[in-house]
Design a protein around this nucleic acid. Structure first.
Length: 832
RNA sequence: GCCCGGGUGGCGAAAUGGUAGACGCGGGGGACUUAAAAUCCCCUGGCCGCGAGGCCAUGUGGGUUCGAGCCCCACCCCGGGCACCA
């Protein structure tokens, strides 16, 4: 027969995650637990998470994983005594939202807020320490007013300019795509094959900042992978610009060569090429110009004109991506020759699409012996190949079956007075030599291009510019911001290449702010990456509508202390945010020039070996797992499943471990004794655990932190008696970042009145953590032969004596040891 | 092709150059139960051995070291990024 009193007590003490979580989420909201006093914070800590795009599907497990790691780190910093600001917002402008609205037949102005409501619900359920009083959405006029202000700041400083440029055109989305939005010749979003078009576009001069963006990577505390990606993206190359004099095509090649070389006659033009291998100039056997190169026309002889023009026309039609990916070398001879300034020999000038106009000077010297592409071209057109660098065991006459592209090793050959020099020596010497003849200078090139921010779309902040026939391009005065995005029914892009906004005269026609004459608005909206390039500046100042960010609050809270996000934003978003910050710094608006002190890239949750994606249909929604297990268990499970910075494979089976761990913690905490003393051995383990959890949280090594707590739990459970309060309470504090609701509930049951997150972090005591007796590993010749229990402070001699007293060890030591290696506290290695 | 990661039990994974496989999942055995679930306890890298114990083992092959999963060289495989950038 069951005892009704007893079972009622038990029922009340059963861990019910749903009830606990509901209670604490409500309590946090009521009491404003997660909304710190930003102005008065004594130890501010800005814990930033990349804000999401509010998709219709809501948060998936991947987002949830990333947010959880971020939240745990933030809660940990708070427990350590910081005032932690953990804001959230929504990156809701852009092609994503617009395409979604088009598909659904709705309007983004209605659909997006609906999605945001769902995101808020999910984020609250997840138990994140979000300060909802500073929520923002990039689509609010109160926000994009300042996005437009940022544009004006750049414009004012000459960093925003307009140019006609070949752009990637997606025929399906009917818009220009950034190079980054093109993947393998196809539109990143819809997969349509991208074409080339020419449009007037707004650009930001990010290339002016290339060197600084590169140099600061030396000192900012970021994931190394992210820094490497940025370095590669900026793509600095040191080399030389070399001038090749063109021979007048009208003159006979042979005689002209001599006369130009002796300075008797002037060459009609010269071609500048960029090379990173000036050391190979004696092997430059022809030149190549990009089809768009401005000198092509002048250099083309009458016989070649037909062929060259045909080639250029074909190249112009080709889309950018095909051109950049096709490998077979094509080209055409212009009919002209230029003088190699090193050899004095005339070499032919070709036009070929493997040379890109937008990099370097749009022209190259071809060195087929030492460049892969030039070698292929030489084969295709039967051009001469000369070896000018010889590697190990090679000499000037060793035939080149393939180009020798070694950039470090090798010595120069067939290069007259430079023969015998190493490649680095030759680089310097040849540039110096040519520089004296004013034929070369050392230069640096970057692969980074200026940032095209124009989008011929509807769903973005209008670029604040007005065109006036009299005044030209006039920026919208700051007092007239924001330029509101009109609520129009027909926002579908068409193939005119002009934003749908142009079709709305009531918006489009506007008086010139300078002279009052009729003007026209810029109809492009700006890139979403501009919205996200400064949102972290806005968060602490969302209540201010008169400034983009409050100077006092900003200098208190920024730069961001910890930024966590996906490495898919390693280049674009993170580079743009740095750029905008630098510009504002130079403008005197910000004190700092790097926005994020510390950045860590989180890994990704995959499912059945594949990235979660809508197309693969393997997206996991966190809601059902929270329903079934509770947010605390789900959070702990996600963090336990693999290293945070690497991600892991999501499978439901493993969730039981963390669930049991939290269940056992609940039991220990609700059944602990308060009288008597804590077990010193348990306390020792506790302090070892504090150390491990603390280090784990600092390093975002959440999986090992959870493991350490589980180990401690196993020790607690082993005890004969129920655990003592002093053994359990600190564990609840350690687990709090992972399972905040459970921790709050237990903390309250312990009799505390304030939130556990204001209780401080358990102090680690190394003396308490130290073991008196340790297991010393004993090796013979590096092979483990046993362990001996010894006092912590054991000496080498004492340890050796104890080890040799053990028969199973001694039998491997037939004679006097040759050498004894002793690592205090770890091992003894006897070498015989 | 280039640049980053990574390769450890059946699985997810630990491991400042110092006892490889902590922690967890799964599996096996047991306790409790009429039974099941839940819970709890024990075992669980491979091979040999009754056992004590031994041998092998961190993608492959070399090297450095008293000692290598970790460092160096060469290579293979997987994941991601960039890619005609001269």
């Amino acid at each position: 027969m069951t005892d009704p009193t007893r079972s009622a007590t038990e029922a009340a003490d059963i861990y019910d995650p749903a009830a606990v979580e509901r209670k604490w989420q409500a309590r946090w909201q009521e009491q404003g637990t997660n909304s710190p006093d930003l102005a008065g914070a004594p130890r501010p800590y800005y814990q930033l998470m990349m804000f999401p795009y509010p998709s219709a599907e809501g948060l998936h497990v991947g987002n949830f994983f990333a947010f959880t790691g971020n939240d745990i780190h933030g809660r940990f910093q708070r427990l350590r005594g910081h005032t932690v600001f953990e804001p959230i917002g929504f990156d809701a402008f852009g092609i994503h939202s617009e395409n979604y609205a088009l598909k659904m037949g709705g309007h983004p102005m209605e659909l997006i807020p609906r999605n945001i409501v769902n995101f808020r619900r999910q984020l609250r359920r997840g138990g994140f320490m979000v300060d909802w009083s500073h929520e923002l959405s990039t689509t609010d006029a109160a926000y994009y007013k300042w996005t437009q202000w940022i544009f004006l700041q750049l414009h004012e400083r000459g960093l925003a300019y307009k140019k006609r440029a070949a752009v990637n055109w997606c025929p399906n989305d009917k818009t220009v795509l950034a190079n980054e939005q093109v993947e393998g010749g196809k539109c990143e979003r819809c997969g349509a094959v991208v074409e080339q078009r020419f449009l007037e576009q707004w650009f930001f001069r990010i290339t002016d900042y290339a060197e600084r963006l590169l140099n600061n990577l030396e000192w900012i505390d970021w994931s190394e992978t992210t820094k490497t990606a940025q370095r590669n993206w900026i793509g600095k190359s040191e080399g030389a610009e070399v001038r090749f004099h063109v021979l007048d095509p009208e003159l006979e090649a042979g005689s002209a060569t001599a006369r130009v070389a002796t300075g008797e006659i002037e060459a009609p033009a010269s071609i500048a090429v960029f090379t990173t291998r000036p050391d190979t100039i004696f092997g430059a056997t022809w030149l190549v110009l990009a089809p768009e190169h401005p000198l092509v026309d002048a250099l083309t002889t009458d016989e070649q004109r037909g062929a060259v023009e045909g080639y250029r026309a074909a190249a112009a039609k080709q889309d950018i991506v095909t051109r950049k990916t096709h490998r077979d070398k094509t080209g055409v001879f212009t009919g002209s020759y230029a003088l190699n300034p090193a050899t004095g020999e005339p070499i032919p000038v070709w036009v070929a699409d493997y040379v890109l106009m937008e990099y370097g000077t749009g022209a190259i010297m071809a060195v087929p012996g030492h460049d892969e592409r030039d070698f292929e071209f030489a084969r295709a057109f039967d051009l001469p190949v000369v070896r000018v660098v010889a590697g190990e065991g090679e000499d000037a006459h060793t035939p080149l079956a393939a180009p020798y592209t070694e950039n470090e090793g090798g010595r120069l050959v067939n290069s007259r007075q430079f023969d015998g020099l190493s490649v680095p020596e030759a680089k310097r010497a040849i540039v110096e030599h040519l520089a004296r003849k004013r034929a070369a200078k050392a230069v640096v090139n970057y692969r980074l291009h200026d940032w095209c921010i124009s989008r011929q779309r509807y769903w973005g902040p209008p670029i604040p510019i007005i065109y006036c026939d009299a005044c030209g391009t006039v920026p919208v005065p700051e007092r007239d911001l924001p330029v509101l995005l009109p609520d129009i029914e027909d926002f579908r892009p068409d193939d005119t290449g002009v934003s749908p906004l142009a079709r709305h005269d009531e918006w489009y026609r506007v008086p010139c702010p300078r002279c009052g004459a009729p003007g026209r608005r810029e109809t492009d909206v700006s890139d979403t990456f501009l919205d996200s390039a400064w949102y972290f500046l806005r968060y602490p100042s969302t209540e201010r509508d008169d400034v983009p960010f409050d100077p006092t609050i900003t200098s208190k809270w920024l730069p961001v202390d910890s930024y966590i996000g996906g490495n898919e934003h390693a280049v674009l978003h993170l580079l743009y945010a740095r750029f905008v910050t630098m510009v504002l710094h130079d403008a005197g608006t910000l004190e700092f020039e790097e926005p994020f002190k510390r950045f860590r890239a989180h890994g990704h949750i995959i499912r059945e070996g594949a990235k979660m994606s809508k197309t693969k249909g393997n997206i996991v929604n966190p809601d059902s797992y929270i329903d079934e297990w509770g947010a605390d268990t789900f959070r702990t499970y996600l963090m336990f499943l693999g290293p945070f910075e690497e991600g892991g494979d999501f499978r439901e089976s493993g969730i039981k471990g963390p669930r049991d761990f939290l269940g056992r913690l609940w039991i220990s905490a609700t059944s602990m004794r308060t009288e008597g003393e804590a077990d010193p051995a348990v306390l020792r383990k506790l302090h070892q655990t504090i150390d491990r959890v603390q280090t784990g949280l600092e390093r975002l090594s959440f999986n090992t932190a959870v493991a350490a707590m589980m180990e401690y739990m196993n020790v607690l459970r082993k005890g004969e008696r129920s655990p003592h309060r002093d053994e359990v309470e600190p564990l609840v504090q350690l687990v709090a970042p992972f399972a905040p609701h459970l921790a709050e509930e237990l903390w309250e049951r312990f009799g505390h009145e304030r939130s556990i997150f204001d209780s401080g972090w358990p102090a680690y005591d190394a003396a308490l953590a130290a073991e008196d007796t340790i297991q010393l590993a004993v090796q013979v010749n590096g092979k483990l032969r046993g362990t001996i229990a010894v006092p912590r402070e054991v000496t080498r001699e004492a340890a050796l004596e104890l080890a040799l007293a053990e028969a199973p060890i001694a039998k491997f030591v037939p004679a006097a040891p040759k050498k004894v290696v002793f690592v205090p506290g770890r091992l003894l290695n006897i070498v015989v």
